[in-house]
Simulated assay, not measured.
Amino acid sequence: MKLVAVSAGLTQPSSTRLLTDRLVEATVRAVGDEVNVEEVNVGEVNVEEVEVEVVELRDLATDIANNFVTGFAGRALRAAQEAVTSADGLIAVTPIFTASYSGLFKSFFDVLDPESLEAKPTLIAATGGTPRHSLALEHALRPMFAYLHAVVAPTAVYAAAEDWGNDDGLPDRVRRAATELAGLMRHRAPAREERLVPFAEQLAALTREP
């Protein structure tokens, strides 16, 4: 089982990456709880069959821009795209700018194969300076991932500046969202398999007598 997190923070360190790491750790623990695994190792995270990879979009900004201009993904961007495409679960975290996701965050998903997130369990989250921007998760992020046919966890996590160092709310939201994502990953519907029907078989079906 593979969990991939996409973090669109622009600074180093960033609150966006901090929230990403908390969601990753909570999801790994939740997967472990479902299979009664007690030992959890976070960092090079491996819990039973769970493999974790974090994609930092700030490191891919130039590659993403070049992809728009040339139509070709560089090696690092291609590796990130393949990681997201092959993941059993996705955590997507963005800072909120002007009441919506960041341009870098949106651009990364614009250069993905539009069918690569179909039926993929996904947890959406965001950071911002004020709680007023929390609704961006529902009016911007959730519709985008619904358009891409991802299966989005019911609980979205928003962390404002005042949430850090405050144990009243954010930890509970993180645990609830992580538990939902772990459940979706465990019970993920198999990808649709499309069978190519040979032309002779199609022709026979057309000419068969009713």
Rank of each mutant, 00 (worst) to 15 (best):
V31W: 04
T62L: 14
V40D: 08
A156V: 01
P210W: 00
E38R: 13
V197H: 02
F97K: 05
P131S: 02
Q81M: 10
L196I: 15
V28M: 00
F145C: 01
A87K: 01
T70D: 00
T127L: 00
L19F: 04
A8C: 10
L181E: 08
P131T: 06
V4W: 07
A160W: 07
A80R: 05
L19C: 09
T207C: 08
E162I: 01
A5G: 09
E34C: 03
A189H: 10
A191C: 12
R176S: 14
E38A: 13
A140F: 08
I91V: 13
G183E: 14
A76Q: 12
L141E: 09
V54C: 11
P198Y: 04
T94Q: 08
F199L: 15
T207E: 14
G74R: 02
F109C: 04
R175A: 15
S134H: 05
E56S: 13
A99Q: 13
F145G: 04
V151I: 10
V45S: 14
T11C: 06
D33E: 15
P143K: 07
F68P: 07
L57M: 06
E193W: 06
R195N: 11
D113K: 08
N36T: 11
R186W: 11
G32F: 03
V174A: 05
V174K: 02
I124S: 00
E53V: 11
F109R: 03
A204Q: 12
A140H: 10
L77Y: 03
R75S: 15
A119I: 10
E25N: 06
L206V: 06
V4E: 09
E51M: 05
R188D: 07
A189E: 15
E201T: 13
F145A: 02
P13S: 03
T127D: 11
E194F: 08
H149G: 03
A119D: 13
S14Q: 06
S14G: 11
D167C: 04
R173K: 15
M144S: 04
V50Y: 00
G103H: 02
G183M: 02
E39M: 13
G89Q: 06
H139C: 09
V54W: 01
P143H: 01
P114W: 01
E34H: 10
K106C: 05
